[in-house]
Design a protein around this nucleic acid. Structure first.
Lengths: 186, 186
DNA sequence: AAAAAATACCTAACGGTGTTAGCAAAGGTA
DNA sequence: TACCTTTGCTAACACCGTTAGGTATTTTTT
């Protein structure tokens, strides 16, 4: 039932966007009355939170695959960037929910631990590249955020239709170039 | 009246956040009935859109000042980054509205022209730095987005409380370092 | 088997939202 | 005086998240 609610909610969002997701529509879709939903979730935010966790888990699984596939840390970091970008645009509903893009923010803040877990994937790759340079932990941490910012910033800008570059491969190229430059500078 | 509605709405948002802004509360605050608001704005989104334009204009004014103050393009670009960051955290309500952070997205998409206008400020500074290298227009455009992404990405992450760096000066340092590296690589 | 307790599910409501139809009073114009 | 435009209101519509309270049905206990 819980699972059913979540999957129906996700489907509704894919069809009509976050804006129009409502408890009543979920109830209709699972063919039960409204209060049944509250037997399984405290409130609407709890549903959104659970879905955002699904999003983080899905992303994490992709990054985990990369970790096994690319022993070279530089290739690994590039693959992570690639995977992150492609996750965002293959699952825009998830990405928007995870970072509160264009929607009331659900469980942002509570999501931090999950984020840290993901962040470590990038951190590991960066540390792999930078290890011989013996940079401090602080510096590595900064670099993780710098790298993350480039990815998240550009994805946000494109996803919110703020970019005037219409060709999506061009937007992707901006990311690729920046990632390249970032790695060269590590 | 129009102005009054906008300023009251902004005040309500500063006090209670976007989530709890409602037409009825605006009506109460201006001491008129609800339909009066619809004589001046088509709907709630139109109010939010107008406020977001105010945000862009406010930001633009700051960048305009920089343009006059810093003839050196490198210093100008740094000052723009500084101003952008400080605008975001001095006026989080505006920034959130402008980019749809954690709220139903208002006029995102319609905001694009205004964004381009702002973007040119960064573009001008970058072109000033890079002019002797004779890079193509496309490349400059890419660099604008790359630069913008770093700023917007980190600001988003911090503003949505996704960063685990608690000290805000440290978050700022991540930006400063990245900006520094970005300029060196132009 | 009978009584009690727990479960599953519903109807109906409360207070809130954005939005609009329709009416009443006031003021200016012919 | 009669008309029209403006200004503002009340009251409603349809939706929202949430919850109180009731009714069957099933399970457990005596």
């Amino acid at each position: 039932m819980r699972t059913n609610i979540l999957s129906v909610a996700l489907q509704l969002v894919k069809d009509e966007g976050w804006q129009s997701l409502s408890i009543r529509k979920i109830a209709d879709a699972i063919e039960y009355s409204v209060p049944v939903i509250y037997d399984h979730f405290e409130n609407k935010e709890a549903i959104l939170f659970e879905l955002s966790m699904d999003g983080f888990r899905l992303l994490e699984r992709t990054l985990e695959k990369n970790k096994k596939k690319y022993p070279n840390p530089e290739q690994l970091l590039k693959a992570h960037a690639e995977a992150y970008w492609s996750f965002a645009f293959k699952n825009p509903e998830y990405y928007q929910l995870m970072y509160g893009l264009g929607m009331p923010c659900s469980g942002i803040g509570r999501v931090k631990p999950q984020l840290n877990c993901f962040r470590d994937y990038i951190g590991q790759a960066i540390e792999g590249i930078v290890k011989e340079k013996k940079s401090s932990d602080d510096e590595t941490c900064f670099k993780i955020y710098a790298f993350w910012s480039v990815l998240h910033g550009l994805i946000s800008i494109v996803m919110m239709r703020c970019s005037d570059i219409d060709d999506s491969t061009m937007n992707k190229k901006v990311m690729d170039d920046t990632v390249e430059a970032f790695i060269k500078n590590l």
